[in-house]
Design a binder for these strands. Structure first.
Length: 427
RNA sequence: GGUGGGGUGGCUGAGUGGUCGAAAGCGGCGGUCUUGAAAACCGUUGAGUGUAACAGCUCCCAGGGUUCGAAUCCCUGCCCCACCGCCA
């Protein structure tokens, strides 16, 4: 959420920056609402003041043993006036809050102009895609040929489309990737491993920005508690600090967390229908950081490097792009996507997304720290990034490490997690 | 599932329907003392909104209600604790 005072005082600046994100801020409507809020609020508060004063006087008079009946008469219609004003005020305030809750975060100045992913700008590239002297298979064919160790058909039977089932060494490889990433972030990158609920309430989803605007992307649990399956660990992990004021000396806080992620993929009919790229359920190892405002720029670079380090250890070629304004998420001020090379598509495909949200989520969540210089609470900056998406990493390993006979070499760093095994073949 | 007790400031914790935004302690900050530190002592210290600065207003889990007036009374919800029962 943006600072309402900022939107109020510099609406033109805000509107101008949001153009880059493809968002049109209705400055007129905002002003009109804001003006009436002000008027009603002033009126309401003066009525409240009067009520408070008179009530106090009644209290005093009563304590002094005086007759309070005349005083009560005076205050008679104040009550109706006040309650009418309060109702009016809360109505306008609700509208204003709703408007503010749907305004996206401002993009950084460094964010390039553009409408969609074609306008993202490459910032670096690592590794060289391997050239194969045979016709490469994609992960679907590889998995099927490996005696169905990766199986979409059975998952469709169990549930429906956009699910996957695994068994044997592929299932173990999938688990090995999770362990490897958690261990690396914990041991090499200084993150604390945590475990959190996979079901969250509406407040948490509001805090990170999924609600109220993106409800259709979520799986909602069908009872009256208003719970949702998490679309990413970002939601539970970031909300750990909702409504908290923490000591500055605890910062930065760096957490890594493995969770499944559930997404309805409502708007993506027909996209990536084959294979494991886009699923309703996938695993992810996430990194989340809470930092002081002045530290968030450096933290984003470091966090992105932490994700890249995983790909480098796995020896998978990637490139890193900075998202253009049009491709940037609702809550993000700046995002780097890391894209891994997929031989079957001869393309780099997104495997991680690393973002700086600045104080946008923190303001929604009231996540603050006490600034030792001023003694006052200030909003934290929040960041997060995938490190990495497990399903897509599995695909990348299978496809990049495939042999002519359809077997798959296991990357060196994963072998300790695979009982020393070097190759996955037919069982 | 049953019964009972609770949710108050950064934390712990008191609070009779009427100067209670709230005692006290801890912690934080400033100071005295000290070569320095600790201890001790003195002072200060909730969050927001609002203002040029005051003032004012809101907030004692959340939402309703009673009242001239609610942290305090009533209703609903959420959460926590204790004991009993049941299950893993």
């Amino acid at each position: 959420m943006l600072d309402s005072k900022f939107v109020r005082t510099q609406p033109e600046d805000v509107a101008a920056k949001l153009v880059k994100k493809g968002f049109t801020l209705d400055v007129e409507a905002f002003h009109a609402l804001e003006q009436s809020r002000r008027d009603i609020q002033v009126r309401t508060e003066s009525l409240q003041q009067e009520r408070n004063n008179r009530s106090k006087n009644i209290g005093k008079a009563k304590a002094a043993g005086e007759d309070i009946a005349p005083l009560l008469k005076e205050v008679d219609d104040l009550k109706q006036q006040l309650s009418a004003a309060e109702t009016e005020l809360s109505g306008v305030q609700t509208q204003l809050d709703a408007l503010l809750a749907e305004i996206p975060n401002l993009p950084d100045d460094a964010v390039p102009e553009g409408n969609d992913e074609d306008d993202n700008v490459e910032v670096r590239r690592w590794g060289t895609p391997k050239s194969f002297d045979f016709e490469v298979k994609d992960h679907v064919d590889l998995g099927a040929a490996l005696n169905g160790q990766l199986d979409f058909e059975v998952a469709t039977k169990i549930t429906g489309s956009r699910f996957a089932a695994m068994k044997g060494d592929i299932a173990r490889l999938h688990r090995a990737l999770i362990q490897f990433m958690l261990d690396t972030h914990q041991q090499d990158h200084g993150y604390e491993e945590i475990y959190v609920p996979f079901i969250v309430n509406r407040d948490s989803l509001f805090g990170t920005g999924q609600l109220p605007k993106f409800e259709e992307d979520l799986f909602k649990i069908q009872d009256d508690r208003g719970f949702y399956l998490i679309p990413t660990a970002e939601v539970p992990v970031t909300n750990m600090l909702r409504d908290e004021i923490i000591d500055a000396n605890q910062l930065p806080l760096k957490y890594t967390c493995h969770t499944p992620c559930f997404r309805s993929e409502a708007g993506s009919y027909g996209r990536d229908t084959r294979g494991m790229i886009r699923q309703h359920q996938f695993e992810k190892v996430e990194m989340v950081q809470f930092v002081k405002p002045e530290a968030s720029d450096d933290a984003l670079e470091a966090l992105t490097n932490n994700a890249e380090a995983i790909l480098e250890k796995l020896n998978l070629p990637y490139r890193t792009v900075i998202l253009c304004g049009g491709d940037l998420g609702f809550s993000a001020a700046r995002t780097y996507d890391i894209e891994v090379w997929l031989p079957s598509q001869e393309k780099y495909r997104e495997i991680s997304s690393c973002s700086n949200f600045r104080d946008f989520q923190a303001r929604r969540m009231k996540a603050r720290f006490r600034n030792p210089e001023t003694g006052k609470p200030e909003f934290l900056h929040t960041l997060n990034g995938s490190g990495l998406a497990i399903g897509r990493t599995l695909i990348a390993v299978m496809e990049n490490y495939q042999n002519a006979d359809g077997t798959i070499e296991i990357p060196e760093v994963l072998r300790p997690y695979m009982a020393g095994k070097a190759v996955i073949g037919n069982p």
